[in-house]
Amino acid sequence: MPSFKCKNIGMDCPFETSAPTEAELEQKIADHARSVHNIKTLDKDMWMKIKKTIK
């Protein structure tokens, strides 16, 4: 199951999540970025950084 941690991209944030598919995980990450970090849209460079840390 793919998982993600905010701290793995250098954020000072304890957020960790996982999902059955990478698409569902990406949605959870985008929702978290919007609601907690006030990042309305994750740009291509940020997605590349995120995807490198998904396990």
Score class of each variant (00 low, 15 high):
residue 53 T to R: 00
residue 23 A to D: 13
residue 35 S to P: 03
residue 43 D to K: 08
residue 52 K to R: 14
residue 4 F to M: 09
residue 41 T to E: 13
residue 20 P to K: 14
residue 20 P to R: 13
residue 14 P to D: 15
residue 52 K to A: 14
residue 16 E to G: 05
residue 8 N to T: 05
residue 50 I to R: 08
residue 26 E to D: 11
residue 8 N to C: 01
residue 10 G to A: 02
residue 37 H to M: 13
residue 2 P to R: 04
residue 4 F to A: 05
residue 27 Q to N: 08
residue 29 I to V: 06
residue 55 K to D: 15
residue 43 D to T: 03
residue 49 K to C: 13
residue 44 K to T: 07
residue 17 T to A: 08
residue 46 M to P: 02
residue 4 F to Y: 12
residue 31 D to H: 10
residue 3 S to T: 11
residue 22 E to F: 12
residue 26 E to T: 02
residue 16 E to Q: 12
residue 36 V to T: 12
residue 20 P to Y: 01
residue 25 L to G: 04
residue 43 D to V: 02
residue 31 D to R: 10
residue 33 A to R: 04
residue 1 M to T: 08
residue 20 P to A: 14
residue 34 R to A: 11
residue 52 K to F: 07
residue 33 A to G: 07
residue 19 A to K: 06
residue 23 A to V: 11
residue 52 K to S: 13
residue 53 T to K: 00
residue 30 A to F: 02
residue 55 K to Q: 15
residue 47 W to E: 07
residue 26 E to Y: 00
residue 13 C to R: 05
residue 6 C to H: 01
residue 53 T to E: 15
residue 46 M to K: 09
residue 22 E to M: 13
residue 15 F to V: 03
residue 35 S to I: 05
residue 9 I to K: 00
residue 28 K to P: 03
residue 35 S to L: 11
residue 29 I to F: 01
residue 22 E to G: 06
residue 17 T to D: 13
residue 16 E to A: 11
residue 29 I to C: 01
residue 23 A to I: 10
residue 14 P to C: 06
residue 35 S to F: 08
residue 49 K to P: 10
residue 34 R to F: 06
residue 34 R to P: 06
residue 51 K to S: 14
residue 10 G to I: 04
residue 31 D to E: 12
residue 38 N to K: 06
residue 44 K to Y: 05
residue 7 K to W: 09
residue 24 E to K: 05
residue 45 D to M: 12
residue 20 P to D: 15
residue 47 W to A: 02
residue 52 K to W: 06
residue 23 A to W: 09
residue 7 K to V: 14
residue 44 K to L: 03
residue 45 D to Y: 08
residue 54 I to N: 00
residue 3 S to L: 08
residue 49 K to Y: 12
residue 18 S to R: 10
